[in-house]
Measured scan of single mutants.
Amino acid sequence: RKEMTAACTPRRRIINLTSVLSLQEEINEQGHEVLREMLHNHSFVGCVNPQWALAQHQTKLYLLNTTKLSEELFYQILIYDFANFGVLRLSEPAPLFDLAMLALDSPESGWTEEDGPKEGLAEYIVEFLKKKAEMLADYFSLEIDEEGNLIGLPLLIDNYVPPLEGLPIFILRLATEVNWDEEKECFESLSKECAMFYSIRKQYISEESTLSGQQSEVPGSIPNSWKWTVEHIVYKALRSHILPPKHFTEDGNILQLANLPDLYKVFERC
């Protein structure tokens, strides 16, 4: 597991931080080997919608929660590849102030007048994250320049770009939802926020969305749709870069829909 690298990086740093090793061990302890084997050997059937997909393993048909699986995938990559990410360069710098204002204007932020003026909160978020810029760049390849612009994001899987519609809320939550006081809790909560931002979430995906850094293989055609990215990038990574937690067998994120021999018997009677 320590050699797990989802995106190509030129050289690998050895990380011996106790906090990170502890988080890696927790993933191992909570892992479910049968689910790992199923995901490793599954045959992708198709997307139901951005949140759900169908896959077959041996004779069984499964309904998989793409949102939760991708979130767990990105969390584990962030923990196992800690401080070893490439950088996704933004085509132009994104001012943190503008991103924070967009987030505060969104109902998702939960902002009320009692929280104070949005401009003041946005300025605080910019200054707060600028103070964390060195650590964010060093460990997470999340790059913020001296003017308070976001200029780079971590490359977690080759050819995958997170849904940038979720970027404003991500920046807001970096400042408000991460435990910045304790090292282990900081790395864990920061990785979880980043994983949620990178995950496939239906509120940020339309039929026209593209999450891939590449064009489709047909010359002159439109960019790959999110469905292509889910199948050929995300579920491909799920084959080798995730140890599913045991609770996925109990919380409805992986559901067995049918045993195909039983279905064949039904059709034979028709």
Rank of each mutant, 00 (worst) to 15 (best):
K68L: 10
S106P: 13
P162W: 00
E26Q: 04
S189L: 06
E92W: 14
I14D: 09
E165W: 03
E185F: 12
E25I: 15
L102D: 12
G148R: 02
T18Q: 05
T9I: 07
R269Y: 15
G152H: 09
E123C: 14
K132V: 01
K68W: 14
N259R: 09
P223L: 04
F140C: 10
A7K: 08
E108L: 05
E185H: 04
G110T: 01
Q56F: 03
G46W: 01
T59I: 14
S91M: 10
V20Q: 13
S91K: 04
T249I: 09
L255G: 11
L255E: 03
C186D: 02
A122P: 01
L136Y: 01
G31N: 11
I79V: 07
V126M: 06
P162Y: 00
E188I: 12
L102S: 09
I205D: 07
Q58P: 07
I79M: 07
F140T: 06
I144E: 01
L121Y: 02
K227W: 10
Y204N: 07
L102K: 02
D138A: 03
P261D: 05
E25S: 14
L243D: 13
K130Y: 15
L172W: 03
F170T: 01
L243I: 10
E119D: 11
L104N: 00
C270I: 15
S22K: 02
P261G: 07
H241V: 11
L238P: 00
Y62H: 06
Y235E: 05
L35R: 13
S191I: 02
W226I: 05
C270Y: 15
L99P: 00
S43P: 07
K227C: 07
S225A: 10
G110Y: 03
I151F: 10
A175I: 15
Y198E: 00
L153E: 00
R12K: 07
Y235P: 00
S109Q: 02
K192S: 06
T59Y: 14
I157A: 13
V45P: 00
V161T: 06
L61T: 01
T59H: 09
D115I: 15
Y204Q: 07
I144D: 01
L211D: 04
I205S: 08
E25G: 04
Q76W: 15
L69D: 00
V48W: 14
L39C: 12
F97R: 02
Q30N: 09
E119I: 10
I233P: 06
G213H: 07
F85R: 13
S216T: 10
H42T: 13
G46T: 02
I151V: 06
S221F: 12
M4I: 12
I27L: 12
T59D: 08
P163R: 06
I27C: 10
F248H: 06
K118Y: 15
K227M: 06
I77F: 14
Q203G: 04
F170C: 00
A53Y: 11
E185N: 04
S43L: 10
Q215P: 09
C194Q: 05
S199I: 01
S91P: 02
D98V: 08
E26K: 06
C8H: 08
V234C: 14
H247A: 09
L63M: 05
A6S: 12
N49G: 09
L153S: 00
F97E: 02
S199V: 11
N28H: 05
L63Q: 09
A100P: 00
D115G: 07
N41H: 07
Y124Q: 01
S109F: 12
I27K: 14
S240G: 08
I27Q: 14
L255A: 05
N49H: 11
P95F: 05
P219T: 05
I14K: 06
L150Y: 00
Y264C: 05
L104C: 01
T66H: 02
T9W: 13
H42D: 14
I205E: 10
T67L: 15
E165I: 03
L153F: 04
E72H: 08
V48N: 13
Q214K: 09
A7P: 13
S19G: 07
V230D: 02
W111G: 13
C186S: 02
E108N: 03
Q56K: 02
A94R: 01
N16F: 15
L211V: 07
E143W: 12
L153T: 02
R11W: 15
H232K: 07
G120E: 02
W111N: 03
P50E: 06
H32Q: 10
T112L: 15
S189T: 09
F82P: 10
N149Y: 12
T176D: 01
L156V: 11
V48M: 08
T112F: 15
I169Q: 10
N253P: 06
C194V: 12
H232E: 09
V48I: 09
S206I: 07
H247L: 14
G152V: 01
N224W: 10
F44A: 08
N84C: 13
M38A: 07
H57L: 08
L69C: 08
T67W: 10
A122G: 06
V48K: 13
P93H: 06
R13P: 12
L164W: 04
N224Y: 06
L54F: 03
F170N: 00
E143P: 03
E231M: 13
A83V: 02
I14T: 06
V20L: 05
P10L: 12
Y160R: 00
R89T: 10
I157M: 14
K246D: 14
K246P: 14
S212Q: 10
T112C: 11
T112I: 13
G31P: 13
E72P: 00
W228M: 04
P95A: 10
L39F: 08
I200Q: 08
S240T: 09
G31I: 13
N259I: 03
P93F: 02
R13E: 13
F85M: 14
E134T: 02
R12D: 14
P117V: 15
E250T: 08
N259Y: 08
S206R: 06
F44N: 03
Y198D: 00
S189M: 02
Q215I: 08
L153M: 05
P245M: 14
W111V: 05
T18D: 06
I144L: 07
D158F: 08
C270Q: 15
S19H: 13
I242T: 13
N224R: 07
S225T: 10
R173D: 15
F85P: 02
A7T: 09
T229Y: 09
P261K: 11
V266T: 13
V230F: 03
L88R: 08
L90A: 01
K236D: 13
A237D: 14
C186R: 02
Q214D: 08
H232I: 13
R201P: 06
L23K: 11
F187E: 02
N253Q: 05
V20Y: 15
E114R: 04
L121T: 01
I242Q: 15
L136Q: 00
L102R: 02
Y198K: 00
W228C: 10
S212Y: 08
I205C: 04
Q214F: 05
L129K: 01
I169F: 09
R1H: 11
T229A: 08
R13F: 15
L255V: 04
R201T: 14
F267I: 12
K130G: 15
W52R: 05
K184W: 13
L167P: 00
I79N: 13
S221L: 11
I151S: 07
N41S: 05
E143D: 08
L99W: 01
T18R: 09
L211W: 06
G31C: 13
L39A: 09
E146K: 02
F248G: 12
E177A: 03
Q203L: 13
H247F: 14
D145S: 03
E177M: 14
G148K: 02
I233T: 10
A7Q: 13
G213P: 04
L155I: 05
C47G: 10
L155T: 06
V266A: 15
V266Y: 15
M101Y: 13
L153C: 03
E183P: 02
D158N: 05
N149W: 14
C186I: 02
L190C: 03
T112V: 05
L102H: 08
S191D: 01
G220A: 08
M135N: 03
N16Y: 14
K265P: 10
R173T: 08
G86Y: 14
K246E: 12
I171K: 00
L211R: 09
K130M: 14
V48D: 11
Q58M: 10
V218Q: 07
T210R: 06
M4W: 13
W226D: 06
K60P: 11
G148Q: 03
N179K: 03
K2D: 15
L63Y: 06
E188N: 06
V87K: 05
V218D: 08
I77P: 00
L190N: 00
